[in-house]
Amino acid sequence: MENRLFVSSSPHIRSSETTQRIMRDVTIALLPAAAYGVYNFGLRALVVLVLSVVSAIAAEAMCQKIRKQALTINDYSAIVTGLLLGMNLPSEVPYWIPVVGSFFAIAIVKQAFGGLGHNFINPALAARAMLVASWPVQMTTWTPVTPDAVSSATALGIIKEGLDVPLPSLFDLFIGKMGGCIGETSALLLLLGAAYLLYRGVISIKIPGIYIGTFTLLTLLITGFDVQLTLVHILSGGLILGAFFMATDYASSPITPKGQIIYAVGMGLLTVVIRFYGGYPEGVSYSILLMNVAAPLIDKYTKPRVFGGAK
């Protein structure tokens, strides 16, 4: 034969799924909630979102340039991190906050540990935690969403501080007419995005389902089966955003089927503990980060039983 044949070991076909497609799907899924944030909080929110995405891409490119690696900014992963961080910021933050946050997320949390797939905690959440710890005032200044709003406090803040102001209605909480971070308010649009990710097979319902389920059950128990209050808890703060879009981060969550259950239950437990007994009104980001840190250990002790292996 004159021409040369390709020779390689099996398998010889691959699925059409790619890292790029997965990350692009996550970006698409986040957009409705992000867009609603802009509608809700105004143009300033858009600037914050754009700044965090652009800085995330710039940070990724810079790190890879310095380390003389191939540029992978077209795999959408930096965009996802930037977008998630932006959505986790209040719209009133000074403009340098998203820039600093994105650089921290990408350069320190992601690239310093080996880049894509090697971040042991969620980069966007780690950056948010760093920002809250460093600049607490800027990070907790909320914008009132309705002109007649009496207070700019979030629903969880109202509950925590025992403020004498009415809570937003459940319907407002569901569609997102309330204060909070740019992208966390609209449960409806976040669930829409999550449904898209489930449909595309990017995430499974397991982690978010068990996380929210555990949280709901414990909240019901603590509040003495106060359904109204429990629903307020589910719909406010970053629970929906965190459970579907950040707890499911591949690199920082366990990979074993059993491990994912433990991880999700752990997050539900920690969120309840922080929200009800801790100093902060909101506990989603710290719960996810703490369980992220535990993920390798969980993986180690939940190795799946080999087919036909000893029970």
């Binding site: 992963s77 880049g115 591949y250 990979i255 190795k303 087919f307």
Partner: peptide
């Protein structure tokens, strides 16, 4: 090939339950 993103799809598809 690009970097492993630890999606765990290989774990869920492995018919022998390997990682």
């Amino acid at each position: 090939a690009s970097a492993c993103i630890k999606c765990g799809k290989c774990v869920t598809t492995c018919p022998i339950n390997l990682e």
